[in-house]
Each structure stands twice: as structure tokens, then as C-alpha cells.
């Protein structure tokens, strides 16, 4: 079992790498294309995976991953389960601000328990939780912008800002009522 580690490789100069993990590969592809098209001053490298762990054969060529994004489709249970199991293959160091959750299809009728489960997961891991609109191009572009903003910090491209610092500000906290439930 290979654990993905945040600091196992030297960073690239003027570059940032983002890993999109989505079990169903629906939103992943168009989001990746949108991210690549954005106007950035650095080389952004997008890598795609259906789930973790990543295969060993690419280990050598794989650059350092600065941000791991889990895309969870709310309409499918498998999507959530896959993300949950994938989390085990991440080094704890990633949870210091280098993991982000993106929820899609939250607009359609979905069981509320699933959304609550995702929120609890994000809150327990101190990760930001983004809601993405995957039907319109504007929605996809917005999501790409938000991810890039986080990526810039996690890749160390912003002076005086660190991923841990950012994540303490952006990490998801549960609303008090669910918090209360959790407590009970």
C-alpha cells in the first residue's frame, strides 16, 4: 500500500499540481480542462484519478501533489463510499490544508443524510467543502477559480500564506444542531 505523501518529492519551480479524484469521472474531465485553460502565471498540472491509492508504476514520474480534491456526486452512494475509502491512502500531512472536497449535484433531490455525512466528513478532517454547479460553464469556471485559489496557496506560490494557515480559515465547521447530534 503506497501512501501519498505531501513532502516526499521536491517541488517544481513555478509549478503546481492538483489531483482530482472522482469515482465516476463525470465532472472530473471538464473541470480539468477548465482549470488548464485558466490564466495562471504558473504551470498548473492537473492529474486525474478514480480513487486512491495511485498505481505504483507511475510513482517515479508523478510530481509532488499540492492539492488533492475529492469530487463527490451526491446522487450516488458509491461516489461517497469511494472517497471515504480513498482517504485512507493519504498521508496525514495532507490534512493540514491540502485536501478539499467538492460536492456536485446538490441541487437535485438527494437524501439529506448523505449531504450531512459529507459535511461531517469534511468537518472531522478540517477540510474546506465547496459546492459546485456542474451543469453550466459558469459554474465549472467558478469552481476552477476557487480550486486554483486554494492551489496557489498550497503550492506555496503566495508569499506569507501557508496551506495550514488558509485551512484554519476555510475549513468546514458543522452547524450547531448537527454538532449537537454528534455530541450526543
Amino acid at each position: 500500500m503506497s501512501l501519498l505523501k505531501p513532502f516526499s518529492k521536491t517541488p517544481e519551480i513555478n509549478g503546481a499540481n492538483i489531483l482530482l479524484v472522482e469515482n465516476e469521472e463525470q465532472f472530473q474531465q471538464c473541470l480539468a480542462e477548465t482549470i488548464v485553460l485558466q490564466n495562471m502565471n504558473v504551470n498548473v498540472n492537473v492529474r486525474l484519478a478514480r480513487s486512491l491509492p495511485l498505481p505504483m508504476e507511475n510513482e517515479k514520474s508523478r510530481p509532488r501533489i499540492d492539492l488533492v480534491v475529492f469530487i463527490i456526486n451526491l446522487t450516488s452512494e458509491a461516489s461517497f463510499k469511494s472517497a471515504e475509502t480513498s482517504l485512507k491512502y493519504l498521508d496525514p500531512g495532507y490534512f493540514l490544508g491540502k485536501v478539499c472536497f467538492v460536492v456536485t449535484k446538490a441541487r437535485s433531490a438527494v437524501p439529506p443524510e448523505r449531504l450531512i455525512a459529507v459535511r461531517k466528513l469534511a468537518a472531522s478532517l478540517h477540510c474546506p467543502l465547496l459546492y459546485a454547479e456542474d451543469q453550466t460553464t459558469e459554474g465549472v469556471t467558478t469552481t476552477a477559480h476557487r480550486l486554483l485559489a486554494i492551489l496557489r496557496v498550497t503550492a506555496g506560490l503566495i508569499p506569507m500564506a501557508t496551506s495550514l494557515y488558509l485551512s484554519t480559515l476555510t475549513c468546514y465547521t458543522l452547524p450547531s444542531d448537527t454538532d449537537q447530534l454528534n455530541f450526543d
Partner: peptide, 20 residues
């Protein structure tokens, strides 16, 4: 886990911005 093709060559070539 094995069948994931997580390295997509098309995505690894990023457009490089002139100003950047």
C-alpha cells in the same frame, strides 16, 4: 485502484503564459 489511469498525458502539457 490499479485500473486508474491517473496520469493523462493531455493534461500534463499546460499552456504557459507569456507574462507569467
Amino acid at each position: 485502484g490499479v485500473q486508474q489511469d491517473n496520469v493523462q498525458p493531455s493534461d500534463t502539457q499546460e499552456p504557459v503564459l507569456p507574462s507569467g
